[in-house]
């Protein structure tokens, strides 16, 4: 069994069940979208996949071995995470931020090697920030900051990349740019998304969560049906199947069989 896999993982916090028995197997190179409303367990599932959070029960495995046995450092050389919103008060250049991705590859006392420098340069090149490498990270725009974080993740040289709503704070142009970049990366990607249309455009496969449970799984065309959108998100939508991927058009709540807005 190669790759990253969550097997019936459960995470509880007090009485609340955040993730309830979700299984997810990743195929090499695919882009998997995690969908679901706020609080459906997307972030918690991603954190368990990254090994940052331990499942209450169930297990996350990397090439068949539980993450706890693989160890934090070795996991970080394989699995990289990009958070929703990165923030620091530390004064760092873009290159220094990207070089953080080499931390799991370097010993405590060993100076940076040519391989480290090469990985950082390649990551900067890939996200188009080579020209900004010497600049302060704080001078970057929101979209550029997220690209710098993706470059940092790429410097880890992962085979699995986990992204938690990376486009949340971006305008539409930068959302598309970022997802184009992510989809072009030669890694297996799991990405939590809010926007169903973006998910339909960029993901090979979707896993829909609701209240911590996996509701359905499949290609965007299989998953994104009016019935599912109504059931999971509580809104009505029309789905048309254009060339390539489905397109979702949401309907105003007032259109719901004459029911007034705000109900249901």
């Amino acid at each position: 069994m190669t790759g990253l896999r969550a097997d019936r993982v459960v995470r509880r916090a007090g009485d609340k069940v955040l993730v309830d028995g979700v299984t997810l197997t990743l195929r090499p190179g695919e882009t998997v979208g995690l969908l679901g409303p706020n609080g459906s367990g997307k972030s918690t599932l991603l954190r368990m996949l990254a090994g940052v959070l331990a499942p209450t029960s169930g297990v996350v495995t990397l090439d068949g071995r539980p993450l706890t046995a693989v160890g934090r450092r070795v996991t970080a050389r394989r699995v990289a995470t990009v958070e929703q919103h990165a923030h620091t008060q530390t004064e760092l250049t873009v290159r220094e931020v990207v070089a953080l991705g080499r931390v799991p590859h370097r010993g405590a006392w060993t100076p940076a090697t040519a391989a480290d420098a090469h990985a950082v340069a390649r990551a900067l090149e890939r996200v188009g920030l080579t020209g900004r490498a010497g600049q302060s990270w704080h001078t970057l725009s929101g979209g550029e900051r997220q690209r710098a974080q993706i470059a940092r993740a790429l410097a880890q040289e992962p085979r699995e990349l986990l992204l938690d709503e990376p486009t949340n704070h971006l305008d539409i142009q930068h959302q598309l740019d970022l997802l184009d970049l992510v989809a072009s990366l030669p890694v297996t990607t799991v990405i939590a998304l809010h926007d169903l249309n973006l998910a339909a455009m960029y993901c090979d496969r979707l896993l829909v969560l609701c209240e911590g449970r996996a509701v359905t799984e499949g290609t965007p065309a299989e998953v994104l049906t009016p019935a599912l959108i109504e059931r999971v998100h509580g809104v009505r939508a029309e789905v048309t199947h254009g060339p390539g991927h489905p397109v979702i058009r949401f309907l105003r709540p007032a259109d719901r069989d004459g029911r007034p807005a705000g109900e249901g």
Partner: peptide
């Protein structure tokens, strides 16, 4: 970038 990011770096 915080505890969570540090954990993500191993």
């Amino acid at each position: 970038f915080g505890d969570e990011a540090a954990a993500g770096l191993g």
